[in-house]
Amino acid sequence: MKILVGIKRVIDYNVRIRVKSDGSGVETDGVKMSINPFDEIALEEALRIREAGNADEVIVVSLGGNECQQQLRTGLAMGADRAIQVDSAESLQPLTIARAFLKLVEKEQAGLVMLGKQAIDGDNSQTAQMLAALWGRPQATFASAVELSGNKAMVTREVDAGLERIEVDLPAVISVDLRLNEPRFVKLPDIMKAKRKPLEVIPVEDLGVAPENDLQFTSHTPPPVREKGIMVEDAAQLVAELKTRGLL
């Protein structure tokens, strides 16, 4: 079985986000970029599935400009077998990304697609569900445990009410949550080895996919700021202050 893993290049989660003064987006110049944290977890899980003998090949996939090859190389260094960059100059929206993934699924005959539960830039949380819908296959979103047996996956999902379990037949799409695993660290020799692993570049047009019904993002603004408030000295003052404000 082949597993496709989505790897999105995003601003590192430690970076303080600044909105550009002209409102056209957020500052990315000279900003540290990383693999979307959820995607690292998706890849880790795929590697563990392969290491357990339940998959033959793990393929990392990123849609974006050439710069996303950096994140694909990191994925290869973590242990993915090969990489595909779907080349697109403009940034694509989830429906188009899901359509492109479906083309790759068909081309590679993948049995499992593992994506992040959300990309931490747009916080969309859409791509996995859309791919599953277009493919007509199961979706198991927000996974915090995945157990494969034969042609089925038992997935524990982190939902608002607690932990839900569903069983899905493969092929399927799984989107992963933070508690699924701890991604491994990349070691230097692996980085060297990753340079020799295959990285295929496919222009998005060659997949026969083009943006449709895109949303327009017309303006970006900084969020309203919360003013720093007062400091109190002890618990008694805190309770008194809350009572004065009618909160207790």
């Binding site: 429906l95 949380s125 859409q126 996995a128 569900q129 979103t141 999902r157 939902v159």
Partner: peptide
Amino acid sequence: TFGRDLMPRIAALLGVNQVT
């Protein structure tokens, strides 16, 4: 989590992007 799971699946079946 209910809506986040369901709504993108609806959007894709209708061929639209979702506003989150």
